[in-house]
Design a protein around this nucleic acid. Sequence first.
DNA 1: GATCCACAGGAAATTAAGGGTC
DNA 2: GACCCTTAATTTCCTGTGGATC
Length: 429
Amino acid sequence: MFDIDNYFKDFMSKEEIFHERDVLRPEFVPSLLPHRNHQIQKIAEIVACSLKNSMPSNIFIFGKTGTGKTAVISYVSNHLNRQCRNANIPESKWIFLNCQEVNTGYRVLAKICDEIDPDNPVPIAGWPIDVVFDTLIEKINTNLKGNCFIILDEIDVLVKKARKSQDVLYNLVRINSHLKSTKVNIIGISNVLNFKSALDPRVLSSLGEEEIVFPAYNALEIKDILEQRAARAFYPDVLDPSVIPLCAALAAKEHGDARKALDLLRKAGEFAERRNAKQVTIDHVYFAQDNMEKDKMKEYCEALPLQSKMILLSIYQLEKHLNQETIITGDIYNTYCEMVELIPGLNKLTQRRVSELIRELDLSGMVNARVKSTGRYGRTKFIKSNVPLRDLQDYLQNESRIAELMNIPPSCIRNKITRFSGKKFRKLM
DNA sequence: GATCCACAGGAAATTAAGGGTC
DNA sequence: GACCCTTAATTTCCTGTGGATC
């Protein structure tokens, strides 16, 4: 049996790897941001006029994940507010919203209201949207003195999700005409470079006053970032000299994502720590990388709704029994229909919805789905699991209702009905 | 060149749930 | 309790696709 008290006791007494582990976490904002001088300067030049009670331009920021967008804004906001305190003028309010989480117009307005006045929260639903907007104006006029910066991270998600949210954005960028003394500025962040084309021209003209692009880091730049953080995060001589260049090279291969590099370095350190190693080596990095991928897939799979798991089960069944043969949407839907009927109380979804769920699995990286035309035999998706069958089996077996079905081959597989004479691919039913 | 297949995927409608006001 | 609002999930309807076949 695992002796938890002894484990904690040993943990306290063993030689330490980390000096300040949290320095490697994405939310940590260092006192210097290497290779982002130009972006810091540009944003600082735009927002500086708020110190003289003028309204800065709205800003659009583009850049892929892990290119330092959020860190730079946090950095500028800290310095601007420090200047406000020194000059004895009201500090600006900085409200960060991630549109992946706050993804409807109503919720954006409600969340801003709650950030300004947390004692009187807006209900999560129920109010007409214009009432929420009026409430926001009232809260800003009553509670805020300095400028207010609203940062909409992943703004493309908000715009893509609902047309109505563009009306909210339009009202938000024009809110200043309703305000007494405070001025509101919007900073939209997106990692989709062509996202502007999806924007309503009315919103675009107000929101896109200034644009800043954050290019991806190259391996040398990531190496600098890692060295700066590692100097604080680890004790001296704990890192093998090859560790940082390796983490930098691996992350640079993935579109220059510094966040991933930091994560990899931290995980490698944690593996070394758990193995009581005195030094973090490249083996720990490779091990960390392998485990990060597996953990990500496992977590994602376990969090999926039952219907998506049923689709994964269908893919598992088809791959298990068909060996390397091509699987198409129709095969999956037929297998899915048969499997669903074995679970009491579970509704059968339409093919349209199943196709959408397959697309989501494809986007997540769980499966690989490519649209191909087979001429006279139609146009469909060719689907392959990206996870080894054994891993997929492990993930699915945690769901008891699915575990029971894993050893029952559906009749469409047992009967092996061929429609297209095996010319291009086999259709099962 | 026309036809055909098996969907893909966009858009609008529907349904259910959660919450509010009057 | 009736009615209104928003949201998320899903269905329904529809047009588009592209390469093999006729």
